[in-house]
Amino acid sequence: MADPMKIRAQLKGDEAVIRVLMSHPMETGQRKDGDGKTIPAHFIQSITVAVNGKTVVSGQTGGSVSRNPVFGFKLKGAKAGDKVAVSWIDNKGDKRTDETTVA
C-alpha cells in the first residue's frame, strides 16, 4: 500500500484551493537500471477529486507526470467543512483514497 497523500483544501472567499501531494514513483517504463534492464512502468493513471461525495475533477495521467505528483485544483462555491476525497489508481491496479475537510 502506498503512503498516504497530503491534501490541503484552503478556503479563499468562496473558492477552495485544493492541493494534493501523492507518493508514487511514476516510472515511465523507459528508464534503465544499472544493469541495462528496463525498469517497468509504474505510474498513476487515474485520479478523482470528490467534494461531499460528488466528483468535481477526474483526471487521467501518463508516466510523464513528475515523481511524487503534485496537483492543484480550484473549486467554486466551497464552504468550510466540505469533505474533499482524493483517489488514485495506478497501472498495476494499486489504489488509494485520502480525505480532508475544507478549512
Binding site: E15, R19, T28, Q30, V49, V51, K54, T55, V56, V57, S58, G59, Q60, T61, G62, G63, S64, V65, S66, P69, V70, F71, G72, F73, K74, L75, K76, G77, A78
Partner: peptide, 25 residues
C-alpha cells in the same frame, strides 16, 4: 518533444474551476 507527448487530461464538473496545476517531466 517528450517520447509520448500527452501528459495528463482533466475533466471538470460540479463547481470545479477549469484550473489545474501539475508538475511534469
Amino acid at each position: 518533444k517528450n517520447p509520448s507527448p500527452l501528459t495528463s487530461v482533466f475533466e471538470f464538473s460540479n463547481g470545479a474551476m477549469a484550473d489545474v496545476a501539475v508538475r511534469l517531466k
